[in-house]
């Protein structure tokens, strides 16, 4: 005879879900940071397809619609979901447009700084000797400089533009990759397969590119994900100070800075851009932490 518990188990929701294998999915995805991943995906899609996604032109101003509140507040309309700024521009569209700038700067900076850093790490770690000494001293110098102040001065002297922000952040960013990846190269260099490659007569370039490089890709990806967030914050901070992509283009930092003047009557001007930065950066950090645990065997036990 079937007792009640079995019956409940058979027809109950838990049972149904279990039959559908949902617990397996949850088990598998419970470890994966789904929400940060989706948020980043949304960010990238917004950034790439900004033109088609944005409901309005982010640069189009209409003073008669200036400082409209978000749609749920009195006076807000569903035409401008998150309200409008002091020039009557749609904030949602500007946020989406700002995503393009943030993603572009962050991606290019991380890629360029990464390439320089990887090259320096390979040369320094594998060749050793005076190359190592020289490159690491240069790294020390770059890493011992106060980041934000030097960035501000560099951008101020070069003149605020997208290219100059990228140059500045690459100049200040590559040393971090070089330093950490060099340690990895030193560790990999001890491996038997490198000795064998040397015996087989591989050139130094070939060993560095074909044998060592593939092994430092994982640590690089982890660092790059974590750095993505930092670069976005650095870019936003420069924009906030008025040293970012020049107006009227919508950078998240400059949107917050503009909003500061209207903080008493229209608080939402400052809230949205910061919220966007927070979500993206938090996602990068969570995803980076997760990657660190899953891509790097050293951390698997922790």
């Amino acid at each position: 005879m079937m007792n009640l518990k079995d019956l409940a188990g058979k027809i109950g929701i838990g049972g149904l879900l279990r039959k559908a294998g949902v617990h397996k999915i949850i088990e598998a995805t419970g470890q994966v940071p789904v929400i940060p991943g989706l948020l980043l995906l949304a960010f990238v899609i917004c950034a790439i397809f900004a033109k088609w996604i944005a409901p309005h032109d982010p640069l189009f101003n209409q003073l008669k619609h200036a400082l409209l509140p978000p749609f749920w507040m009195e006076g807000g309309t569903s035409a401008y979901l998150l309200g409008t700024d002091h020039l009557g521009r749609d904030i949602l569209s500007r946020l989406i447009g700002g995503a393009t700038i943030s993603l572009e700067v962050a991606f290019i900076v991380v890629a360029l700084a990464g390439i320089i850093g990887i090259a320096a790490a390979l040369l320094s770690g594998y060749l050793g000797g005076w190359v190592d000494a020289l490159l690491m001293r240069i790294c020390d110098i770059f890493m011992s400089m106060p980041y934000l102040i030097v960035a501000i001065v560099l951008v101020a002297v070069l003149g605020p533009s997208r290219t100059n922000i990228i140059i500045t952040l690459v100049v200040l960013g590559w040393a971090g990759y070089a330093r950490i990846l060099r340690g990895e190269v030193l560790r990999i260099k001890q491996g038997d397969f490198i000795q064998l490659a040397v015996l087989a007569g591989c050139s130094k370039t070939r060993i560095m590119l074909r044998h060592i490089f593939p092994n430092i890709v994982n640590p690089f990806i982890i660092m790059a994900t974590l750095q993505l967030g930092n670069v976005i914050i650095a870019e936003a901070s420069l924009s906030f100070l008025g040293l970012g992509v020049p107006p009227p283009y919508p950078a998240w930092g400059s949107m917050a800075a503009e909003g500061r003047n209207y903080i008493f009557e229209s608080w939402w001007l400052c809230v949205w851009p910061g919220l966007a930065i927070m979500l993206v950066v938090l996602s990068c950090n969570l995803l980076g932490d997760w990657l660190r645990v899953h891509l790097d065997p050293k951390f698997r036990q922790l």
Binding site: F240, A256, C270, P273, G274
Partner: peptide
């Protein structure tokens, strides 16, 4: 993860 200027503004 929070930009300093935004914490200040909030």
């Amino acid at each position: 993860s929070l930009p300093v200027f935004w914490v200040g503004l909030m």
